[in-house]
């Protein structure tokens, strides 16, 4: 462990963690808004008529598996196994892209049946909260694609290590937010 005491980018990851906690507060205010407005459907459709829980279950599984594959990517990085690291990152990207594809399809279906964000305060809050999470995952996919490219150009150097450590925190953090989304938006809405 003595090697870990020179500059290992720990200040960068601490700073990134503080950013994530401030992002947490954005999500907290969006969750509070959703909880306050969830009952305001103005005669429009309610959550239990709109949400398909088994569909949400598959979305959840994609994100959960992608968290585990990112964990294995970080282990491959520590072993300096560039090939395995690349494979785990590509797999993580595909799982994340599958999640976003499912979410875009879900949003399009809701809007097509007249349950778009303009329909009621409940749906405005729903699209804002779930859409903000989706935008974060999309940003994570972009970042992941950039890192896969940087890995092939620079190999596993100090910069790539530091950036992947931050991206790993970001990715796991989005999985945490999703736990709250499926519990308090989808499951709660279906009770």
């Amino acid at each position: 462990m003595s090697a870990a005491h020179h500059d290992d980018g720990s200040k960068t990851t601490l700073g990134f963690w503080i950013y994530l906690m401030s992002d947490c507060l954005i999500f907290a205010s969006l969750f509070a808004t959703f909880a306050v407005l969830a009952g305001n459907v103005v005669g429009g459709p309610e959550g239990r008529e709109l949400f398909d829980l088994s569909y949400v279950g598959w979305e959840t599984l994609l994100l959960l598996v992608s968290s585990a594959t990112f964990g294995f990517a970080m282990l491959a990085m520590e072993r300096e196994d560039r090939r395995a690291l690349r494979q785990w990152l590509v797999l993580t990207w595909l799982l994340g892209a599958g999640f976003i594809a499912m979410e875009v399809h879900e949003f399009a279906a809701l809007i097509a049946e007249g349950a778009g964000p303009q329909r009621s305060a409940f749906l405005s809050a729903y699209f804002t909260l779930v859409g903000t999470h989706g935008l974060h995952v999309t940003a994570g996919l972009l970042w992941l694609a950039v890192m896969i490219h940087q890995l092939s150009v620079f190999g596993i150097d100090a910069m790539v290590r530091r950036r992947l450590a931050c991206l790993s925190l970001f990715w796991h953090f989005l999985d945490l937010v999703w736990i709250c989304v499926f519990t308090f938006v989808y499951l709660r809405g279906a009770v």
Partner: peptide
């Protein structure tokens, strides 16, 4: 600092 394969698998299974 990034855990072990066992801790990732435990976290995944529990989740």
């Amino acid at each position: 600092s990034h855990g072990s394969a066992a801790s990732i698998l435990w976290g995944f299974l529990l989740s």
